[in-house]
């Protein structure tokens, strides 16, 4: 008999009768202490459930957390340069106090490397920019 046979799933009446009676018979469970049984089942489950919970947390920390951290870093790299360029950019140069002139680097080097007399050097150190300029002009 193969599965296409219409008789395939038909149960023999005698066997069906036995099984129906068997299935419908409710076992006597009046003596069962359901609360005690449930308590025992739940007590057995304490450790395995704790283990599953721990494993679930571990899984989170080992998979989701790194992904979140990587996403955060990616976001900062994407958004960050604009923000940080502004923050890290040098502040606008403050106005120099009165009486102080700016001297360009070339002039300064020329003054310092020139063959200054003692007097000129002291004037240069103690004096303002004007004296430095005059020294620079004098120097070859």
């Amino acid at each position: 008999m193969n599965q296409e046979d219409p008789e395939f799933d038909v149960i023999d009446p005698l066997l069906a009768e036995v099984m129906t009676g068997w299935r419908e018979e409710t076992p006597t469970d009046a003596d069962v202490d359901w609360d005690r049984l449930r308590t025992a089942i739940l007590r057995d489950a304490t450790l395995p459930l704790a283990r599953l919970h721990r494993r679930s947390c571990w899984y989170f920390s080992r998979t989701i957390a790194p992904i979140a951290a990587a996403a955060g870093i990616a976001f900062l790299l994407w958004v960050g340069p604009g923000v940080y360029r502004e923050r890290l950019a040098p502040a606008p140069e403050a106005a120099l106090p009165d009486g102080i002139m700016e001297i360009d680097e070339g002039t300064l080097l020329r003054v310092l490397t020139s063959d200054l007399s003692e007097g000129d050097f002291l004037r240069l150190v103690n004096g303002g920019p004007e004296s430095m300029l005059s020294v620079a002009i004098k120097s070859p």
Binding site: L42, A45, L52, H53, R55
Partner: peptide, 12 residues
Amino acid sequence: QRGDVVAYELLV
């Protein structure tokens, strides 16, 4: 599967 005690008790 995530260790939920209440869910287990309901199944029981």
